[in-house]
Every structure is written in C-alpha cells, then in structure tokens.
Nucleic acid binder design. Structure first.
Lengths: 342, 342
DNA sequence: TCGTGTTTCTGGAGCGCTCCATTTTTGATT
DNA sequence: AATCAAAAATGGAGCGCTCCAGAAACACGA
C-alpha cells in the first residue's frame, strides 16, 4: 500500500532522480538530461517516453545538482533596496520578459534580508552561483569587491561604477519634462522636494538646470530622511511656508508627491486649482483616483529589458567596453497639474 | 602578474573551493567545512587560520554543492502573489527575524515570474530543494500536488488546505473592530467595499456579522476585479450613489480605501466630516498624511513570526496534527474616522 | 609512564546532475 | 547488399560540498 500509481512522497521515500526516470523510460540518464534541458536531437518517441516517466514519477529536477555539475545556475540575481518603493516592479517584469524565453530565472535579493548570513546581498547571490547580477539599488564598493560575474546597474547612474554597465532612465531629461510642462502651463514659481539617494540627486540637478534655462529661480527643499512620504510631506510644508507664492511642486518621486499632496491639503491649497503637483515614476500610486497625479514615467520595463540585454551582451563578450544606456522618460499628464490662475 | 595579494577573479581563473582553502590554511577540507557551518568543537587557532585563508583567497562557498551534499538548502521559500499589495513586507520581516538566527535564508517566488519554467511557483521552490514553504497567496490544489516539504499558509484562512498549517490574522475579529469603532462613533449607515480573494471574503463576512449583531443593515459592494485601488473607487462610487445616507465606509484593505477616498472626493464628501473611512492592513499608505487612515492592523510581522514557528515545529514533527493559528488584529485610529454629525 | 576518556581533526563515499568522447542506430547513396 | 555520414543515445568523470566513521591529539589521574 501507499505505493499505487502516482507517487505521493511519504516520509523517508527517496525523491526520484534522473536515474529513476531513465530506467522508468527505458533510456539512459544522459537522454533524460537532454530532455530536461530541451535539447534538440532527441527523437520524438524517446522524448515522449521520458516525459511520461517524469509525470508518472512526479519527478522534479534537482537544481542544486544541475548548478553544481554545469557550473552555472541559469539564474540572474537582482539586488533590490526596498520593497516599498514600487519602481522595481516594472524593472522585474522587463527583466523577466527578456530572460524567461532564454531559460533564465530571475531571483531577488534585498539588502535587509539575509544580512546576517552574507556581508552583502551580492555575496548571497554569488554563492548561489548566479550567472549575472542586476543591481537595482545604490551600488557600493563592497558589492563590487564580491562580484565575479557580469553585472549591470539599473536605475542609478550618478555613481561611477568600476566594472558594470549602466541602464537607467534619463533623470535629467525627466526633470526637464516636468519643469517644462509646468512652465508651459504658466508656472513661474516652481518648488522641488527631494531626498537622499542617487536618482533623487540627478532629478534635483535636472530640475535646477531646467529652471535656470527658463530664467527661473529654483527652490529646492530636501527632506530629513530619504524619499518617503513623510519626507515629502515635511519638505513640502517648509517649501509652502517659506514661499507662499509657489504655484507648483515637482516631487522627486510619486511617494514624495503623495506627501506633498498631504502638505498642500494641510495648508489649504487645492490641487490643481491652487497648486500644481507633479511626481516621478508613474507608480500605481500616481493613477489613484484621489491623486490623478501627473508624473514622469521612467519606463522601468524598458530599463529592465535594457538591463537584460546589456547583461546578455556582456555574458557573451566580457571584454567589450562598458556602456551606459539611457531610456527616454515620458510625461504622463493627469489631473494634478493645471494652468496657473492669475 | 595579476596574481598579487588578494585574488581578483580573472576570466578563466577557477574559483577557489574548499580544498584550496584547506591547503592554504594547512588543514583538511572537513575542518574547513566545519568552520563554514559554524560548528562547535573547532580550536580557535585552526578556526582563525581557516578564516584567514577564506579572506585571503576571497573564497565563497558554493551553495549548490552544499545543498546537494547535505540534501537540504537551509532555505525557506515564500510564495507571494503581488508585489504591489504591500502586506507581505511585514510578513517577510517576521519570517526573517525568526529564521535568520537559525541559519535559514528566506527566498521569494512570485507566481507571475518564472511561470514559463515551472508549472507553479511551488515547483520552482521544490527544485531549489527548499526546506520549507510559506504560501502567502491564495493556495491552490496544484500547489499542494507539487509539495514535498513542510508548508504553512500565511494570511489566507478561508480555504481548507490539505496538508498545511495556517497562520493568519483573524479577519473576522478585524472587521468587527472596524464596525464597532464606527458604531461607537454613532454611525448607523456603514457600507463595505470588497473584492475577490480569500481574505476579502472573510472580512466581508465579519463585517456582515458585526452589522447584524448591532442591528444594522449591511451594504456590501464588490468591485469588478480584485482588491485594487480602482476596484475600491468604482465600488465606493456605486455605494455612495445608491445609499446617499451612508456616513461611513469600511474598505477590505487600505488600497481599496484609497479608492474610496477618491470616490468620496469626487462626490463632494469630505473625510472625516461627511464620511468616515476605515481600511485594513495598516500599510505604509495608511499613514500617509493625505489620508491619515484609520485601519485594522493585521500584525503581519506576528503572522510571519507565527508562520516561521509553525514551520519549524512541523519540520521537527511532520506528523503532529495540523494547526491554525490566529493573530489578533488591532485597530489603528487615525484621522479618517469621526463621530457622525447629526 | 601508561592507560583512558574526551576533544579535535581527517579521509572516503556519495549527493544528482552536466558535459564530453564514444558508440550505436538510422537513412541516404551507391 | 554494402558503404558511409549524420543523427541519436550512452557511460564515465567530475562539479564542491556534507556526513560519518575512525584516527590523532590532548588531558589527566593512577
């Protein structure tokens, strides 16, 4: 008993391996391996027999063994910084879209988790023997010290990196889009709220340049912490209090824009009637009906797809010169910006 | 040249393995293995020698080999459903907090990714040879078909599961907290917006029961799709239009509450003056200054910690009876609810 | 000095695959 | 039917570890 038909793994029952499948299908283990990897040059009859045996035994390949034997994991590691900032969602789907058809998996690591076991998330991925790494957080020296496979930095382009290609949206252009949209609506007194972190730095820089080009005086307020909602709120309050003539705020990202919207509400400024507001990222937040936020779309899916391509190129030719690829951002106009009322 | 001091891995240079470390430290590979695993009973002198060699050679253990040889990966897999619904963030940190000290990693899989390579995310984790699985999405039959290690379902408790413990917040109690808070503020006409999915179903059920207990008539409106912002918006619009006398809305989660807030604004209802609003999850969204949303905190960190404990218990004793553990939710009162004005 | 237990250290076997060189089978062409 | 190239299938070696049984080193009292 307990052994009939489809095998339900009971305690102690050894998991079937490639040899079990081979003998069940009446072929060699090597042939099973070929079928598993979808290799060409296997006769349809044998392939079907192997597949049937796999199904019947409820066989699952052991990826640890495959990785060890092949010295490659067919996995791409992605280093994230914070799950709460949703820009990575598009990035992941762009990466996945490119890698999946090639048989590569995408594995995610974030710095806060597993910190006890590895010095950096890169360490963790290295010991998984990933075939490539996408760094979607602010890159640091020690990450690159541990690096041993092709890498590409996605999203951050202000920090010079020793040995990685860079793919990002063009934050400078994005900021210009935002400023010019507001200027086109007649705004002259435009504030910017920002925070720590690479992309934010570039966005502030782009804002400042665009303002000067338009002959306008920049007003930048940096939140205490990073680029969270509360930082956007605090910075916006200060901005509004110090410059009552402000008619528009450009926030370094949508989350900070949410904070800015809170500050506007608390200061009795209606959006967009009394204050235009514009964000960055085109996150799910921006399309919420309460905000209907005009925002800069960094096209993170394209950034992800570009990162995937850069990684694949580098895996083919590790000695090719390092490249930086910039994705052109787009302005998404919703209801949080309006012509300035005199 | 290119061989001085700290070894920077060049193309073609074989990665150091446990034997390289052993001979560099003048010990056996077995001793290196012991040091790597932090085993007791290694003399301080040898331990130091090994650690020095590891550092000098820039050695990284090969987890594939360790997993294969030990027939365990010291990794717990987590199946997520959607990165955009942030309730999982607390869950992950609760899980991690418990597992990290025990030397277990936490690996995340989500259904949409790697779908081409595996039939279910559980398949993917199984071939990684995870030592346990936390299912943080709506469990399905086929997930359990592939299962071969201890599993616990976290967050969803309405679906009966064949072979897994369940840890969740008590949605029925949470809904009651919400309704009673509103009733205490004098509300009688309280609507509920909900959507598809297990937790939502229970929350609606709890709402209905609590309403009836208080002698009130329930008003439930389900969005077209799932439990996203737009579903909350649409359902709330209908609710408000059909029941103009409504003074409060309880949303199945914070994201839907954001949608409800949009609907309220579009119908000229101020929050909380004209309409009280209450959410569920206590996500980062709820604390945003624009919303200051009263919400039910499902205490996801505790759910995560509980799931970890359940999993560890089951790893020790696979034959123990299945358990369901419920975490008591808490009401977080912010500024979106107020006494009803007559 | 010699046991005798305890702690520390070691070599061998084997985990389940991939890769490769080789063998077997197939099928086209004389 | 004989020959030969191409296609399909195979067996062996080895990836880098863990685990285990046993060897070596050490501690301590008789």
């Amino acid at each position: 008993m307990g052994d009939n038909g489809r095998v339900t793994q009971e305690t102690g029952a050894r998991r079937p391996n490639i040899y079990d499948v081979a003998s069940a299908a009446g072929v060699s283990k090597s042939l099973v391996s070929l079928v598993l990897r979808g290799a060409p040059g296997v006769s349809p009859a044998r392939r079907a027999a192997v597949e049937e045996a796999i199904e019947r035994l409820n066989y699952r390949p052991n990826r640890a063994a495959a990785t060890l034997a092949g010295n490659r994991s067919r996995t791409i590691g992605v280093v994230l910084d914070d799950y709460r900032n949703l820009w990575f969602v598009g990035l992941l789907s762009g990466l996945h879209e490119q890698f999946a058809p090639l048989g590569f998996r995408v594995a995610v690591a974030d710095p806060s988790f597993n910190a006890h076991l590895d010095r950096t998330p890169v360490d963790g991925l290295m010991s998984l023997r990933v075939d490539g790494i996408v760094i979607a957080t602010e890159p640091s020296e020690e990450m690159f010290a541990a690096l041993d496979v092709p890498a590409v930095v996605a999203g951050n382009r202000d920090i010079p990196v020793p040995g990685a290609d860079v793919v990002a949206n063009d934050d400078l252009v994005g900021s210009r889009l935002a400023v010019e949209h507001l200027v086109g609506l007649g705004h002259r007194e435009i504030g910017h709220v920002t925070g720590g972190g690479g992309a934010a730095r570039l966005r502030a820089q782009g804002y400042e340049a665009a303002m000067r080009e338009n002959g306008l005086r920049p007003h930048i307020k940096e939140g205490q912490g990073l680029t969270m909602e509360s930082d956007g709120y605090q910075a916006s309050l200060k901005l509004l209090d110090q410059n009552p003539s402000l008619t528009a705020i450009f926030a370094a990202n949508d989350t900070m824009a949410l904070g800015a919207a809170g500050a506007a509400r608390d200061r009795g400024r209606r959006i967009p009637e009394d204050l235009s507001l514009i964000g960055y990222d085109n996150s799910p937040l921006a399309s919420a009906n309460l905000l209907r936020l005009t925002t800069v779309d960094g096209r993170n899916e394209e950034v992800g797809a570009g990162a995937a391509k850069a990684l694949l190129d580098r895996m083919k030719d590790p000695s090719a010169p390092l490249r930086t690829m910039l994705v052109e951002p787009e302005l998404v106009i919703r209801a949080s910006t309006a012509a300035v009322t005199v």
